[in-house]
Design a protein around this nucleic acid. Sequence first.
DNA 1: AATTAAGCGGATAAAATTATCCGATTAATT
DNA 2: AATTAATCGGATAATTTTATCCGCTTAATT
Lengths: 144, 144
Amino acid sequence: MFSKACEYAIRATTFLASCAESGDRQNLKQIAEACDAPEAFTAKILQTLSKDGIIHSIKGAFGGYEIPSDKLSVVKLSDVVKSIDGDNIYNGCGLGLAHCNEKKPCPLHFHFKSIRDELKEMLESTSIGDLAHDLNKGGALLKR
Amino acid sequence: MFSKACEYAIRATTFLASCAESGDRQNLKQIAEACDAPEAFTAKILQTLSKDGIIHSIKGAFGGYEIPSDKLSVVKLSDVVKSIDGDNIYNGCGLGLAHCNEKKPCPLHFHFKSIRDELKEMLESTSIGDLAHDLNKGGALLKR
DNA sequence: AATTAAGCGGATAAAATTATCCGATTAATT
DNA sequence: AATTAATCGGATAATTTTATCCGCTTAATT
């Protein structure tokens, strides 16, 4: 479904979002640990997310990463996915055809349509704050 | 969504299924051409599909690949996908967590549930005959 | 000002996926 | 029996994805 990088990105963003209310900044090591993700690779992903304005990075001693709490309901899952994997998952053709559309559909097109639409709708309506809430409230996990 | 190999596999299987009624056998070159897929790579994929009993291969001169027409409604899209990509797309966790389940869900779990279920249902209920039908009837394409 | 704890960016490495090549085998035709 | 048109299977190559390393910069503390 998503690339490994994107899975890590969603985990990291969710973790940071869950820390946003209490306002504690997390550094790379803490994030990688919390997300069960390789540290160096996570660093690269966080850089991308930071460039795309999804998370905020603070350099220097006692730096790290944060998400301003006013962004929790603004930033959607689709923004995270798009930043790392692009929008192909929910906009592209299931068979990888470049010119597949309603007029000239691939054989899978209409079978896939409602799934793709539901996926897109879910990604675009679920905020990172929603995920953080799931993590804090329910028994939701980011590891193993 | 699917790997490139799996996309090619679905295209090839759909093409062969569309030839099943008229009963004409297709060789590697014809299949690769019809599916806009690299020939040598397609060969490997066809071997896998053949081993898994999804298509039938005939060696020697005037050999090629076929799908017995009585299999058209029996073989499902899920069989093709499982043969090449495994069942992770519709059975695995969206965040790649090994132990994610209803009791210990990842933050995405319940947001994803209906999508995964619908995807699974679609793959398991759509036969390769259905796809072949779409290809023959509608303006459905396998290329570009 | 020096030290220290961070992220940044570029280079590199490892692993997986995608792709090609080619000799061996198979089977139909001549 | 020889030729030819195919798949099969193993080796290898190219590309992409995943992952690591390290020197540089940034900024807080001492």
